[in-house]
Simulated scan of single mutants.
Amino acid sequence: MASGSHLGVGFGLESCTSDVQTAQAFELDGRRVMLIDTPGFDDTSKSDTDILKLIASFLQTTYEKGMKLAGVIYMHRIMDVRVGGISKRNFSMFRELCGDSTLRNVAIVTTFWSEVTPQLGEAREAELRGKDIFFKPVLDKSARMLRHSNTIDSAHDILRQLIGNRPMALRIQRELVDQHLDISETAAGATLSRELLEQAKKHREEIKALQVEMQEAIRMKDEETRKELEEESRKLQKEMHKMQTESQQLASEYRSEKIEMERRMKEMQEKAREEAEQQRQAQIARMRELDEQMQNSAKQSAQEKRKMQDQMDALQRQYDALAADNSDSDWCVVA
């Protein structure tokens, strides 16, 4: 909505953003702004390990190219009746990626206010603000909590809270690039590995309990129950093996993900340069056309000529802005 881009927006149960997406750049209060959309750690089609590799490789690649984020936005639906375990884990991973020192550049944005009464929404907002198990710890460290009312003005007002920030490197960017840590050694990677191992341990205990029940079913000659328990045990073993494998392969698979991200970033930059060049050529052609009209039409009134000159001046400003797009000082990047 803020950028006028046509990125996917999810409203159903399945995740919509399964890859890192960049919105088309736009101007806000004299700043060139680029928005970056990333999938969350509650994705329905990718594992948390896949999401971490995807986000980390993007952040590392952009940081190596000298790009820092002026702001990071975490979206939360105010219509949600409760903040479940998945949402808490999602936000926990978000914090590990950012680190406490960059929380001043973080905005927690609540959405779907039209789906609740003002009284209910404000009560939930107060609970989210005031409880340590929700957003209070990050708000105490200078993060901001803002509302989005699903309008362009609201979206721009939120961005205005961020575009004046001093761009800062996130914790995972400093860990991977400045400290040369392995992905599994980063705070986010270590947290994810620990969670995977804890889940695998829980599955192992569940399998042991199922085996006891299977022995009882065999003793009672209950073949139907035995088969059901055996199938459930196989599912848990498969899931446990998957978690153990993901934890072990996080570092090795990240390297290939990083190479792929660098390739995609190069393609994105080339495409952006081509589109910018096309816009510049179109503006040059339009300026020439207006100039010819002014030179060839002696009958034009002074008012009409002033109008054409204003159009040419506006096109010149747009051209100059496009030419300056590679300057870091002109850009504000928000993820």
Score class of each variant (00 low, 15 high):
1 M>Y: 00
14 E>A: 14
23 A>S: 05
24 Q>M: 12
29 D>K: 05
33 V>W: 00
36 I>Y: 03
37 D>G: 05
44 T>Q: 04
50 D>G: 11
55 I>T: 02
57 S>T: 13
58 F>K: 05
61 T>Y: 00
63 Y>K: 04
66 G>Y: 01
91 F>I: 11
104 R>F: 09
106 V>G: 07
119 Q>H: 07
124 R>N: 11
130 G>A: 12
136 K>C: 06
143 A>Q: 00
145 M>C: 05
151 T>N: 02
156 H>C: 11
158 I>S: 05
158 I>R: 00
167 P>M: 03
171 R>S: 05
173 Q>F: 03
175 E>L: 06
176 L>P: 00
179 Q>V: 08
179 Q>H: 10
181 L>D: 02
182 D>N: 13
185 E>Q: 14
189 G>C: 08
190 A>E: 08
193 S>M: 10
196 L>N: 11
200 A>K: 06
203 H>G: 12
203 H>Y: 14
211 Q>R: 12
215 Q>S: 04
222 D>I: 06
223 E>N: 12
230 E>C: 10
232 E>G: 09
234 R>W: 09
241 H>N: 13
241 H>Q: 15
243 M>F: 04
254 Y>S: 03
256 S>Y: 10
262 E>P: 00
264 R>T: 12
267 E>Q: 12
270 E>R: 04
280 R>H: 01
281 Q>V: 04
288 R>G: 12
294 M>S: 12
295 Q>L: 15
297 S>E: 11
301 S>N: 04
301 S>V: 06
302 A>T: 10
315 L>A: 06
324 A>M: 12
329 S>M: 09
331 W>V: 15
333 V>E: 09
334 V>D: 06
